[in-house]
Design a binder for these strands. Structure first.
Lengths: 247, 247
DNA sequence: AAGTGGTCTAGACCACCCA
DNA sequence: GGGTGGTCTAGACCACTTC
């Protein structure tokens, strides 16, 4: 295994062996026909000069990602790529780029308001505490995709309302405030759009939309943001793979 | 660790040590306050007389399930339970029971039809091959929750249309045909219900619904079923936790 | 019966957090 | 600097599939 385990001046992605191996195997696997058997774990270990446990770490990740499947006693095989994309936490910007669409923002409102009960509870603050509220119309390839309504605890983002809010909010939060969501609780439902929403999204009144309510959490499960996003039903869907419970 | 690793006459759930340990830790964790530190991995290993790797297997599962979180150099902690329920493959019956609702079925139609292009492609069969099509109205606590439109390759489920189709189809498939979905690809979107749908679901015409298209796959990623389920927007939502990509 | 993935061990060193 | 989780090793046995 190539031993590129250095560190530059910056905390550039450090590479564990199992992670390097995972990438190498993923590259091979994507060029192979579904159901083709991979080499045995012992073969891979010998070939890459690592222990079998390290191979298993890499394969576990690939299996969790839906790239391969394993059958005890038989072997490890290339999965058929139907979608094979498990749901992960993404910003609108990332989400659109993954769909090969150009993301864009129009700022509608930005200001400081009282939290209110629902948001306060989800953010773990008092109902009369201040939150920064930002509403934006988000576009993909120049036409409306969704409405975003973000709430952030004002105490954690001083001066945010004065920043440039037309780009990726997640990037801004990470760079300026060191706030990074590593997980989120989401609730997805279908709604009838009201007149304001349908006008902004450019669809006929009374059509349906997909509403996603998300509470973003940092590494220690402390809430960072509570966001409601309302998507056009005709342009947006959510695709993912689910697996059987192991428990 | 209690050594209950026997086998009855039937292939009753065999218990690996890491699985027993996972259950034991989960039971402890659910009685603790969020952010309480767990014992160190080395402590747990010593206390349960297993190796540290086995402890890590158990903790990995708990972390993936959102029950605990780990901070390198600091420790492992009880996660705050906001929802902490990752999406897993469930049947309607299981889904309703998890919500403390009583599931029920009304069979609308059952018969053999030609697959059609979309379903044929997703099931991996010819477009003019036969599929069993079953449509059902599903109720929760006695009132309509969703419409189900199931397609199964006729070749794999001979005689299915004559069975009792008012219970859990997943159970029936598992018992009679040894067909068990272990993963599924899902597409979620919002739709405007048509007149037939809204009448059956008991909601005003023109309201919105949540439509889930699912292709169920067996252990070897071979398609078993293609199902469209249309839920009432006012009674149903999807809740789950997402995490940041490790890659 | 041979070979596969699944589990488990005992030990080691590293990167990171915190007092 | 001491303790934590993160990684890695070399070896072993088991359960299962396949021939």
């Amino acid at each position: 295994m190539a031993s590129t385990r250095k560190r530059g001046g910056k905390p550039v992605a450090p590479q564990a062996k199992h992670e390097e191996l995972r990438r190498a195997l993923l590259a091979e696997v994507t060029d192979m026909q579904p159901h083709t058997p991979l080499p045995t774990e012992r073969d891979i270990a010998a070939r890459h000069a690592v222990s079998r446990n390290t191979v298993r770490q890499a394969l576990n990740a690939l299996e969790a990602a839906g790239s391969v499947y394993r059958v005890q006693g038989a072997g490890t095989f290339v999965a058929s790529r139907v979608i094979s994309k498990s749901l992960s936490l993404t910003s609108f910007t990332e989400d659109m780029r993954a769909r090969d669409l150009r993301p864009e923002s129009r700022l509608l409102t930005a200001g400081v308001v009282r939290a209110g009960t629902r948001v306060a509870e989800d953010l773990g603050i008092e109902p009369d505490a201040e939150v920064v509220r930002i509403t934006r119309l988000r576009l993909a390839d120049g036409s409306p995709m969704c409405l975003e309504n973000v709430h952030l605890p004002a105490a954690r983002v001083p001066g945010l309302a004065e920043e440039d809010l037309t780009g990726s909010l997640y990037d801004l939060l990470a760079e300026r405030y060191r706030l990074e969501a590593h997980a989120a609780e989401q609730i997805v439902r279908a709604v009838d759009l009201d007149d304001t929403e349908s006008a902004l999204l450019g669809v006929p009144p009374g059509t349906s939309g997909l509403r996603v309510y998300r509470v973003g959490l940092d590494r220690r499960d402390s809430p960072i943001e509570a966001t409601t996003t309302t998507y056009r039903a005709d342009r947006y869907d959510i695709r993912f793979t689910v697996r059987r419970n192991q428990s």
